[in-house]
């Protein structure tokens, strides 16, 4: 973006919105929107507190575990579906259903099954992330060059070797694309899970702040979450661009 001939750094439009927020907050229209400056001051005051750090730790743990399961299960399942017609016919309808299903509605069921704890949150995170990872890995295998498979077969590759030396690498760009979208969904999954369980991590903090009408605390945590989610997604997009270089060349 250019202003009066000067190139502005990316996302400088956020300053405009920040100023608007500050203005509305200062006007004191509603207790619900405190000025941005107050939110930021609160943010720095709570960011080092044990309550915040433990919430961050719990969330990061559930998030990482959830994504890990989604990747470790989703990628092989997707690749196998791409390889095997029968498996594909069996699983594809379910994958498509779960991909578009309102998974939030499943969380209460998960709570009954797995309790009000971190297990439920990890499973929720996995459920949010895994379907797109499966679908993308499958698509990656389906578009790959058939003669690579024949080549591997011809030179005596075992099924495991074909999987780890051919299928995985041939589908890698699509797999990474799926993981990026999956991770963004996982951020939603981990937060929604925590909000519904509401005694773990940020869910507990939200519960605490909103029931005590600590609005600037509430907003501060929200800003942190948004920033985290955005950073993760940008990081993955950067990673994907580096792989896309070779994807374009194959």
């Amino acid at each position: 973006m250019y202003l009066f001939g000067y190139k502005l750094p990316g996302m400088s439009s956020l300053l405009v919105w920040g100023a608007l927020w500050e203005l509305i907050g200062r006007l004191d229209l509603t207790f619900f929107v405190p000025p941005l400056s107050k939110v930021i001051a609160t943010l720095f005051s709570i960011i080092g507190t044990p309550a915040f750090l433990s919430a961050l730790g719990d969330t990061a743990y559930a998030f990482v575990m959830g994504v890990l399961f989604a990747v470790v299960i989703g990628v092989p399942v997707g690749i196998l579906m791409g390889k095997n017609r029968l498996l594909d016919e069996l699983l594809l309808p379910w994958v498509n259903i779960f991909l578009s299903a309102p998974l939030t509605a499943l969380v209460p069921v998960l709570m009954v099954l797995f309790g009000f704890g971190v297990t439920t949150i990890i499973i929720t995170t996995t459920l949010f992330a895994i379907w797109i990872i499966i679908l993308n890995s499958r698509a990656g295998v389906m578009q790959m060059n058939r003669s690579l498979i024949e080549m591997a077969h011809c030179f005596g590759a075992s099924p495991l070797e074909a999987f780890t030396k051919i299928y995985f690498w041939a589908a890698l760009p699509e797999i990474l694309g799926g993981i990026r979208i999956g991770v963004i969904r996982a951020v939603k999954g981990v937060i929604i899970g925590q909000l519904l369980v509401s005694i773990v991590g940020f869910g507990a903090l939200f519960e605490l702040y909103s029931s005590n009408f600590l609005m600037s605390h509430f907003w501060a945590v929200l800003v942190v979450l948004f920033a985290l989610a955005f950073t993760i997604s940008e990081l993955l997009a950067w990673l994907e661009r580096r792989v896309a270089f070779y994807a374009a060349k194959r």
Binding site: N145, S147, L148, E150, M151, H153, C154, F155, G156, I166, W169, Y246, K249, R250
Partner: peptide, 16 residues
């Protein structure tokens, strides 16, 4: 397939 035969592919079939 067996080690007594090898194949040259029309589209090369190289690992990119």
């Amino acid at each position: 397939p067996g080690p007594d035969r090898s194949f040259v592919f029309q589209d090369f079939a190289l690992l990119p």
